[in-house]
Design a protein around this nucleic acid. Structure first.
Length: 451
DNA sequence: AGCACA
C-alpha cells in the first residue's frame, strides 16, 4: 500500500529488503526452523510460513536491512546452500519491505482456532479424535465441525488466546497420529489459523459439534449414533451413520433435475424440509432433508437405484448425508427451504397454475391422489389404506417399485395406523402446492404423491 | 523453484 514503486520487481534487479522470500521449503516447515536458519545473520522479527499454492514458501523479516543483506550475500557465495532439514532453500529479497498480516503485525489472534484437516473426508476424523488431540493443550470448551470447499474444518474453542496459540504452534502443519485415524487415511495434515469467533454457538451435542462446558445441552436426536466413535462395519470401514438428510447422486442425468422435480420425488415419503443441488466432481448431487431419520430411511430404501425418469435416466444413488440441518437459500434454482413460509409462497407464486399443472393431472400424477380433506388440511397418508396397485402403476419398469414400502406397512413399529412412517404431514397448504416440474422431461412415471 | 487472500 505504501510502496510508491508500484512496479513488479524482476529477478535480478531486486532491491534489498529486510524481508527475504524463501522457496522450496519442506512442507511442514515451522517458524522455529526459519528463525534457526536466519539467526546467524541477525534478529528475525517476523515470519510467514506455508505460503503459496504448495505452502512451501515463506518470508522472514529481519530487524535490520543489513542483516538481510548479509544472509543473502553469505549464501550467494557459499558452497553450501541454505537448507532446512536437508532441503535446499532458495532465498532472495522479497519485493515487499515488511511482512504484513502475521501475528506480530496484526494477525487476528483469538481463543478459537480454525482447523482445516486436509486429505480426509468428514467421516474419517471423529470429533472425539479432534477433542483428544486438541485437549493436550488445555481445556477445550467447544468444537464445531463442518465441511466447506476448503475441506473438513473444525472450530476449536479454548479458554484463552495463549492456549489457542500454543495449540496452533504445536499442531499447525502436523498430522493427527495414524492410530487415531481409519486405515484408509494416508495423511491428514492440520492447517490452523485463528478464527474471528470468540464464543461458538453450539446448539446440540452431535457428531458435528460439542459443547464440553454444558453437559445438559440436548443431544441432537438425529445424530446420536455419531456422538460415539464412528461405527465400524465388518470390513473395518466407517459405516455411515443414519441421517435425516439424504445425499443423492444422480447418474445418467439426461434431463434436468430441478429442485421441484426432486421435491416431487422425495415428498412421496414425507415432508421435505430442504433441498440443495450441487455439482461434485463432474456429477450432480443433491441433499434432501427430512424432519426425521425414519422418513429418510424409508425414502432411501425405496428410491435407491431407481430412476427419476423411465428408461434409466437420472438414476438415484442414495446415502445418508453427514448433515442434519441444511443451510440453504430459501429459494433459488439450486436450493429450497420449505420450512420458511415465505419461500413456499414464493415457490407457489412462481407457479400460479399449480392447480392445473401436471401434478394435478391424474394421468401424470398417478392414481395415488387422495380425496380432498374437508377441512382443507393436507391429509396424512395411511399406509394401511394406500393403494399399492395403483401406486406401482405409476412406477413402470424399474422406477420406484414400492415393494420396499410394504415391510414398513406391517411393521410393528408403526405407532398408529394413521400416523404411520410414510405419512406426508404437510400441514401448511403452500408446501403442498408445488410448482410444476420443469418441462421437457418425460414425467409419465412420476412417483405417487400422497396428498 | 519465483512473492503473502484484502
Amino acid at each position: 500500500m505504501s510502496s510508491s514503486s508500484g512496479q513488479p520487481q524482476f529477478r535480478y534487479t531486486q532491491t534489498p529488503s529486510k524481508v527475504l522470500h524463501l522457496r522450496n521449503l519442506p512442507w511442514e516447515c515451522t517458524e522455529e526452523e526459519l528463525i534457526e536458519l536466519g539467526k546467524p545473520f541477525g534478529k528475525i522479527v517476523n515470519t510467514k510460513c506455508n505460503v503459496g499454492a504448495n505452502r512451501n514458501q515463506a518470508f522472514v523479516e529481519f530487524v535490520d536491512l543489513n542483516q538481510a543483506i548479509s544472509m543473502i550475500s553469505y549464501y550467494a557465495s557459499s558452497s553450501e546452500p541454505a537448507q532446512v532439514r536437508g532441503k535446499t532453500v532458495y532465498i532472495q529479497y522479497s519485493n515487499r519491505q515488511e511482512i504484513v498480516n502475521n501475528k506480530t503485525s496484526g494477525e487476528v489472534v483469538g481463543n478459537v482456532l480454525l482447523v482445516t484437516i486436509e486429505g480426509v473426508e468428514a467421516g474419517d476424523v471423529s470429533i472425539d479424535v479432534i477433542h483428544l488431540v486438541f485437549s493436550a493443550f488445555g481445556f477445550v470448551h467447544k468444537i464445531a465441525t463442518f465441511e466447506k470447499t476448503a475441506g473438513f474444518q473444525a472450530l476449536i474453542q479454548y479458554t484463552d488466546v495463549a492456549t489457542a496459540a500454543e495449540a496452533r504452534n504445536a499442531l499447525d502443519g502436523r498430522s493427527i497420529p495414524r492410530y487415531l485415524l481409519p486405515e484408509h487415511v494416508e495423511t491428514c495434515h492440520l492447517r490452523i489459523t485463528f478464527s474471528a469467533h470468540t464464543d461458538l454457538n453450539i446448539k446440540f451435542q452431535s457428531h458435528r459439534s460439542r459443547d464440553y462446558t454444558n453437559p445438559y445441552l440436548p443431544v441432537n436426536p438425529s445424530a446420536i449414533e455419531g456422538t460415539i466413535q464412528p461405527v465400524l462395519g465388518p470390513d473395518g470401514k466407517v459405516k455411515e451413520p443414519e441421517s435425516n438428510v439424504l445425499l443423492a447422486s444422480i447418474e445418467n442425468m439426461q434431463y434436468a433435475v430441478t429442485v421441484d422435480v426432486l421435491h416431487t420425488v422425495f415428498a412421496a415419503f414425507g415432508t421435505v424440509q430442504k433441498i440443495a443441488i450441487f455439482e461434485k466432481n463432474g456429477g450432480t448431487q443433491a441433499l434432501i432433508q427430512y424432519p426425521d431419520v425414519t422418513t429418510a430411511t424409508v425414502a432411501k430404501e425405496a428410491l435407491e437405484g431407481h430412476c427419476i425418469y423411465d428408461g434409466g435416466y437420472c438414476k438415484l444413488h442414495l446415502s445418508y448425508s453427514r448433515h442434519t440441518d441444511l443451510n440453504v437459500k430459501a429459494y433459488s434454482d439450486k436450493s429450497r427451504d420449505y420450512t420458511i413460509p415465505d419461500a413456499g409462497i414464493l415457490a407457489t407464486s412462481h407457479a400460479p397454475n399449480a392447480s392445473s399443472s401436471l401434478l394435478s393431472n391424474p394421468l401424470a400424477a398417478g392414481v395415488a391422489m387422495q380425496q380432498p380433506i374437508p377441512n382443507g388440511q393436507m391429509p396424512t397418508w395411511d399406509p394401511s389404506k394406500a393403494n399399492y396397485a395403483s401406486a406401482s402403476r405409476t412406477f413402470p419398469s424399474q422406477s420406484f417399485i414400492p415393494t420396499t414400502v410394504a415391510p414398513y406397512q406391517t411393521s410393528g413399529a408403526l405407532p398408529t395406523s394413521s400416523a404411520g412412517y410414510l405419512q406426508a404431514p404437510q400441514q401448511t397448504p403452500q408446501y403442498g402446492m408445488h410448482p410444476r416440474p420443469s418441462g421437457g422431461a418425460p414425467f409419465a412415471d412420476q412417483p405417487p404423491r400422497y396428498f
